[in-house]
């Protein structure tokens, strides 16, 4: 049926001219699109392709004795393999925690905030006005040897001497979730808002408990929001290094941090390029998943 339609389609030029008003008024010429596309092709796509070339390092490939395969080093050397694993585990972990921490807030924003919803949205967006260094510094002050946490614990007589709270995964995860959870809340809320509350009411009338309604109706319907939010947060963790650098205090090594250090001290640009290509690949996979989700949401919404 569709194939036949496709075959029978009248080419646009052969269609009868439309009378009445033009279907679309175009305020700017479509050629303007070309300017933006060319700008990004030159200053975004070309540099990334150039980067792939740098990581393969053609000059050393020609001399077999000095050949250095950065990717073999990255995936076979136990140290770098561990760094890649830490990056992946950290990204997945922070994303999962953001879902758990953020979901109730999104639910509150959409279902219970009422006239306060504007305030809640403002409170979620307001931290964007502060720099990432400011927020990381705030956690450093809290976790410091003479910081608020240690003083509280000492005051409660739970500990005898100040603990070394900086370093290790805990402060890093707390800091990353802090920066990224608003994005998760907003993504989930935008999907929750599109769920008809009558569906939940029906489930309740038919005898489902509040909790059962949530797990059987609300949660499954909001999976798309969790999906978009997760991709966004995963990508952002995957590229962040400031929080890990300052709150990890040297105890944690991830790919972005290693790129930063390779550039800063070791100056092995080919290796840094190879690592950034791994991040690029992850980003492309995420972008693809994102597109598929958006497309699905588009059809579900229609």
């Amino acid at each position: 049926m569709t194939a036949a339609d496709g075959g029978m389609a009248i080419p646009p030029s052969a269609r009868p001219p439309r009378f009445g008003r033009a279907r679309f008024y175009r305020s700017v010429s479509p050629w303007w699109i070309a300017l933006a596309v060319i700008f990004l092709l030159v200053f975004f796509v070309l540099p990334l392709i150039d980067n792939i070339q740098r990581s393969i390092d053609l000059s050393t490939l020609l001399l077999p004795g000095t050949q250095q395969n950065y990717y073999a080093k990255l995936f076979l050397d136990p140290y770098y393999l561990r760094v890649t694993m830490v990056t992946v585990v950290l990204s997945v972990g922070v994303t999962a925690i953001c879902v758990l921490v953020g979901y109730p807030v999104a639910l509150f924003l959409v279902r219970h905030a009422g006239r306060w919803s504007g305030v809640v949205i403002f409170l979620l967006i307001a931290p964007l006005l502060t720099s990432i260094i400011m927020r990381t510094f705030g956690w450093q002050v809290l976790f410091a040897r003479r910081g608020l946490f240690n003083q509280m614990l000492l005051g409660l007589d739970w500990i005898d001497k100040p603990l070394n709270l900086l370093g290790g995964p805990t402060p890093v995860v707390i800091g990353l979730v802090h920066v990224l959870v608003p994005f998760m809340v907003l993504s989930i809320a935008s999907v929750l808002r599109s769920i008809d509350p009558q569906l939940e009411e029906s489930a309740r009338i038919l005898g489902a408990s509040k909790t059962k309604t949530f797990f059987k109706v609300t949660l499954p319907l909001s999976l798309d929001g969790i999906g978009t939010g997760s991709i966004l947060v995963f990508l952002l963790v995957n590229g962040s290094f400031v929080t890990i650098l300052l709150l990890g205090a040297g105890s944690m090594q991830t790919l972005p941090l290693l790129i930063y250090q390779q550039f800063n001290t070791t100056r092995d640009f080919g290796f840094a390029a190879a690592m950034s290509n791994v991040l690029l690949l992850v980003a492309l996979v995420c972008l693809y998943l994102q597109l598929r989700l958006i497309r699905r949401r588009g059809t579900v919404g229609a």
Partner: peptide, 20 residues
Amino acid sequence: FLLSPLSMPLIVTGFALLFF
């Protein structure tokens, strides 16, 4: 495509652009 720089880790964009 025009929105794609948003999905790229900034450290990758910055590193690649510097050399280019």
